[in-house]
Amino acid sequence: MISEPFSSGSTLFHCSDARVKVIGGTVLSLVLATTTSFAVAMIGFLFTSLLLLISRPSPGLILKRIATVNIFTLFLLFSLPLTYGGADIVQLQYFQISLDGMRIACLIAIKTNGILFCFLALLATSSTVSLGHALERLRLPRKLVFLLLFSYRQLFVIHQEYLRLHRAAQLRAFTPSNSLHTYRTYSHLFGMTLVKSWNRAERVHQAMILRGFDGRLIPLKQPQLRKSDYLLLASLLLISLILAGFSLNNPV
């Protein structure tokens, strides 16, 4: 099973309906993604940091996630000031540092982290299965939801098949090297994984239709919206609206 380390807990977000979190999270992250204002991005970032604090994730895991995403922003922070150009340029020994580039890179970093925090606080606090069902109840095409739920489930199965084959190869003294034999072995491993997963998927599909499956996954839990859910949705939408308003009035 792919682990979902943030999905268990008892905070406000863990107890809220996944539909509310999907809508709120999408709107808020859209506002953050489209803003060009430094101030709005910063306020949004602070707000989503607050959301993340409320969801009380384990610090070690959260730092790891943040680090992964920020490898990308670090790359931009280094490259954009050197390559962006523009009018404001500071000469630093051999390098020409573009202040506009610096500004853009910082804006991207703040926005990226803001959106990341928003998703970690709102979406990661639901299991993939309940997110899938929430999307279905939000009228997303059933086939897409089914694809999401089953890819999530089967990815793990495919990985297990691959590991089993890989172990079998290792047990027969296979050590990867830069040789044709290695490439051929890996291509066989991938090919066999594909074939085995296909067969497996076919058998699982048979098991499903034998038990009356007709394309619709019916969730066992049918969550009802509570007052607190409406309140959370209203506040998330209100904050997004205010941020969007500011963003339109202060484009820089």
């Binding site: 058998r203 038990r211 007709d214």
Partner: peptide
């Protein structure tokens, strides 16, 4: 092979899959 027959995350969800479809 039971592995082909069990595809839901939890036992309850898997057992309830058929009755829900009915």
């Amino acid at each position: 092979h039971s592995d082909d027959q069990l595809f839901s995350p939890t036992v309850l969800e898997d057992v309830a899959f058929g009755p829900l479809n009915l």
